[in-house]
Computed example of a mutant assay.
Amino acid sequence: MGYSVGQVAKFAGVTVRTLHHYDKAGLLSPGERSPAGYRRYGDADLARLQQILFYRQLGFPLDEIAAILRDPAANALHQLRDRQRRLRAEIARLERLAEVAEQAIEVQRTGLTLTPEERFEVFGEISFDLSYATEAQLKWQDSAVYRASMARARAHTKEDWRQLMKEAAAWRTELLDAVDADAPADGERAMDLAEEHRRHLVRWFTPCPPDTHRRILEDLTADPRAFALLVPPSQQRPGLAAYLCEAVRANAARRAGLCTDPEEQP
């Protein structure tokens, strides 16, 4: 006699709407009828539904499931191996995201806690883009320099951040003055500002030899979200990122072979 759509939905753990969708897509059409003419699901239909739900649980789209069911011998093994590869890649990605979340939780537990008013007082217009922070964590999580700099950042007090941001604001003012005065990016004034920024990083975050500083700035200036951590959008000028990058490269070349400070050593 078979089973009604409501009965099948209940014991299969799906909705009636889902079963109607499978029927409309030609994936699972009830093969029996009741004496009154209503369509009913037979044992073969239930076995097919079990296969469909198995592949759906693995994340297969309906068109791929249909192809597998049309010719299981030709499609199932290849499709399952491909799905296994993709699932493993997704598991690895989720594990990385879980590590980021764990570190974010740790920052919330032990890091700097500020009211909105205090945050504006300390950071002003500088804002931290969560998407960029997450991507940076995933990109640099294997870097000992990155991990050490994040550890130092988490250890800073509110007074540390206030002083750090005060220094950064003064540096930005001088940088913008240099740009507005058309000081050449490879000139003494711009290179001195690049060196000042490098020493700022050494003081507050990480040992930073000139070549490391060059790589850091190239990374920061390549992404507008990252560059906004140095100069808020309201203060930026056309070509400013390129100007700063060139100044840092020129300073790195100037200081090549002259690094005697232990903190500057790679």
Rank of each mutant, 00 (worst) to 15 (best):
Y3N: 10
S4G: 15
V5C: 04
Q7C: 08
K10G: 09
K10M: 09
T15D: 04
V16P: 05
Y22R: 02
G26P: 01
L28D: 02
L28Q: 00
E32W: 05
P35S: 04
A36R: 10
R40Y: 04
D45I: 01
L49E: 06
Q50H: 15
I52N: 04
R56G: 03
L58G: 06
E64M: 09
I65D: 01
A67V: 14
A67Y: 07
L69N: 08
A76Y: 00
L77I: 02
R83N: 10
R83D: 03
Q84I: 11
R85H: 10
R88Y: 01
E90I: 08
I91V: 15
A92W: 01
L94P: 00
R96V: 03
I105M: 10
E106V: 04
V107Y: 13
G111P: 06
P116W: 06
E117C: 00
F120I: 10
F120C: 06
F123H: 09
G124A: 00
I126V: 15
F128V: 13
L130A: 14
T134S: 07
K139C: 10
K139F: 11
W140D: 13
A148I: 07
A151H: 10
R152L: 08
H156S: 09
K158V: 07
K158C: 00
D160W: 03
Q163I: 08
L164R: 14
K166R: 10
T173G: 01
T173W: 03
A178T: 02
D180P: 07
D182P: 00
D186F: 03
D192N: 14
D192V: 07
L193H: 01
E195C: 05
R199D: 10
H200F: 15
L201R: 12
W204C: 10
C208E: 08
H213E: 07
A228T: 07
V231H: 05
P233G: 04
P233Y: 08
Q235D: 14
R237K: 12
A241R: 05
A242E: 11
C245T: 14
C245D: 12
E246D: 13
N251D: 14
A252W: 02
A253R: 15
